[in-house]
């Protein structure tokens, strides 16, 4: 057990070190969702968005939940990238010849991605606060938001890592990534509530786990516990199923890739 922990913490520290040395990349990952979506998009649609449709005091407070979950989505889907590079330059092979528990590499990656995502979510909520968005459910609500983010992130990161191990080249990986990310966002309640969508898009969005996550985070920010609690309960169930499917599918790939 001590050995297992020694492995995981050393591997996690490596991811932290890598990130801290890629200062530019770190800055852009952190700043991008806030700058593009929350600040630009949020303010841009302030007057164009119909308050009757969004059911929120202003568009930015409506959008905050969407940006939080989008960040989880993008971090999760990109969570396997570093493993992809490790696979391509042989570093993974070196790790696999050491007497480590086979799951250590995977687990270290989960821990790292979840931690970075949670920090980013906190920063986004902080920036939203500067634009006057105060979470209605307070600190406990923020904790619930982080929990929902992690539940969603685990499944996404698992998919991403499984993809990293399966693709032939990193070009393929990034094409799939680009192809998944935007449709997932448009076909969810991130930018427009389901009721405000064309019927067919609203129908598809119901099958997007992201919609469930947003619909739980949004009342935590806008309304209060009475409204939020049923949604939070529901998202936990949806995410447990989602994670179970993702982990089951990717575990097979991990086993094949790591022996």
């Amino acid at each position: 057990m001590t050995e297992y922990w020694q492995e995981i913490s050393a591997l996690t520290m490596r991811w932290v070190r890598r990130l801290s040395r890629e200062k530019f990349s770190m800055l852009f990952t952190l700043v991008q969702p806030m700058l593009f979506w929350l600040i630009f998009f949020g303010n841009l649609f302030q007057r164009a968005a119909d308050v009757q449709v969004t059911q929120a005091p202003d568009y930015i407070s409506f959008l905050t939940a969407g940006v939080v979950v989008m960040t989880v989505l993008n971090n999760g889907l990109a969570g396997g990238v570093d493993l992809l590079f490790d696979k391509e330059n042989g570093f993974l092979e070196r790790l696999m010849t050491t007497p480590i528990h086979r799951t250590s590499v995977i687990l270290s990656r989960f821990i790292f991605v979840m931690t970075i995502t949670s920090l980013q979510v906190l920063v986004i909520l902080g920036v939203a606060f500067l634009f006057g968005v105060q979470p209605a459910t307070g600190l406990l609500g923020i904790a619930a938001i982080l929990m929902i983010g992690m539940l969603f992130g685990v499944g996404l990161t698992a998919i991403s890592m499984a993809m990293a191990f399966s693709v032939k080249s990193h070009g393929d990986f990034f094409s799939v990534l680009g192809f998944l990310s935007l449709p997932m966002i448009f076909l969810s309640s991130a930018l427009v509530p389901l009721t405000g969508m064309p019927a067919w898009m609203g129908f598809l969005a119901r099958f997007n786990p992201m919609t469930w996550a947003i619909d739980a985070v949004r009342p935590l920010i806008l309304s209060g516990w009475t409204e939020a609690l049923p949604h939070v309960g529901m998202v936990v169930i949806v995410m447990v199923i989602f994670d179970a499917l993702c982990l089951y599918g990717s575990a097979k790939v991990f086993r094949r890739a790591m022996g």
Binding site: E3, Q6, E7, S9, A10, L11, M13, T98, P99
Partner: peptide, 8 residues
């Protein structure tokens, strides 16, 4: 150092 930890 990383490998040192992986070899316990």
């Amino acid at each position: 150092q990383l490998l040192g930890a992986l070899y316990h």
